[in-house]
Nucleic acid binder design. Structure first.
Lengths: 223, 223
DNA sequence: CGATTAGTCAATAGACTTCTTGAGTATGCG
DNA sequence: CGCATACTCAAGAAGTCTATTGACTAATCG
């Protein structure tokens, strides 16, 4: 009978698909993918960002690599991991599905924002358009190397750590739009808090470079 | 320090995303999703198709349901599960990523096809256009209820089990294009084998209704 | 009413995963 | 050369997931 043979074929195929599923079945690995969406990184930078021991991070990266979601390149002492083709898009799809289907995601986010006193509802698309228009001061508050890897056309790089000391550069009478890595990065939330304390009109743009790339919004490199 | 609080926030968010990942981290659950792409089904039909015991199928369905990928509706003795919004697209994205990144998927498929003596390479898009054009006989070899739930505009329903006895309905001088549920369903492969044995010129269209819906190809219901 | 059917629930053995620890390897630097 | 750095590998304890079993519930039918 052909059935048992086709059963084995199906089992094999779904087993293969599962390699992708298993790769994204751990919160730490999703976090690593999220960080890698910002650009290639070495193992200990990744470990630091995700709050993992070096050995543990390395192990998770192996899993992602066997699922072919990331690629490694060794140069000197350092191993640099980067996302494979098509993976950024898939990660964003997964995130979008989670946001759409799991009310808990929104609840968690809202709880955090309220705690930080940063509750607000801004039309994200309209805000992005304003950021692109040049009518507002646009701040990229991520570390400088991430700014260099890609940023909004008229954003200026002011890392959160330097924000307080560089307030002089920012005109007080102009609205400020701050962004960072994306909706689940907290840098811009902090930046907006600081700016408001100092009397600025400031809002956070929730999206980040990975979202813009996926949406076809221009993202400049360097400068 | 704000860091530990934001650490907890991130952990929570990624934990939530992981619910989707975990749901698609088991081959059996992916198979259930695949079947549900064809339309709503009751628990024991799903169990039968996926080769699972009733209790085990029910358990897997609970997991998918807590991840909100599927929805249940009870009517009388039967519980009918259906895909939630946006899930069909996500499943197809996952499958596409697996096909693109994992050479093993293609290898497994090729091995099965060769074993069945069905190796061939047809330009899938061109074949779909021909199937839509009306110049060939288009056969939907799935069970009739699946045909009713959605099929190509000029396909006729000839379930694989009835194919041999209904060959009289099919003109011998016209090329036949057979399709079933999609690339990993074996019904059309068998159908093409039977047709060729009987002297027909027959090819398999690899895609299926879920693919066409995602691509905007018209898919009729009933009739 | 009692029997039947469709499905869920609960418990458990066995298999897999995760994180940790400590050792091992390769490269570069003084 | 010896030593430091960046990373990987291997082993094991603790936790999680899967499939199976048998009992349980809810709806239907005679």
């Amino acid at each position: 009978m052909a059935t048992s043979r086709s059963r084995r074929f199906k089992d094999d195929v779904f087993e293969q698909f599962t390699r992708i599923g298993k790769a994204v079945a751990s919160p730490k690995r999703l976090e690593l993918l999220d960080i890698l969406c910002q650009g290639p990184r070495t193992v200990d930078v990744l470990a630091g960002h995700a709050g993992l021991s070096l050995a543990n991070a390395s192990q998770h990266l192996q899993v992602l690599r066997t699922a072919r979601l990331i690629e490694a390149e060794k140069s000197g002492l350092f191993v640099t991991y980067r996302l494979a083709d098509g993976v950024e898009g898939f990660y964003l799809d997964l995130r979008r599905l989670a946001e759409a289907r799991l009310a808990e995601v929104e609840a968690t986010t809202r709880a955090y924002l309220e705690e930080r006193g940063a509750m607000e509802s801004v039309d994200s698309d309209a805000l992005l358009q304003r950021a692109l228009s040049g009518d507002v001061t646009v701040l990229d508050v991520r570390p400088p190397e991430e700014y260099r890897a890609g940023h909004l056309p008229n954003a200026r790089s002011v890392p959160l750590s330097e924000l307080r000391s560089r307030l002089g550069e920012l005109p007080k009478d102009r609205e400020v739009v701050a962004y960072c890595r994306g909706p689940y990065c907290v840098l811009a939330i902090e930046a907006v808090r600081v700016l408001r304390e100092e009397g600025y009109t400031a809002v956070r743009l929730e999206s980040g470079p990975p979202d813009w790339r996926a949406a076809g919004v221009p993202v400049e490199a360097s400068s």
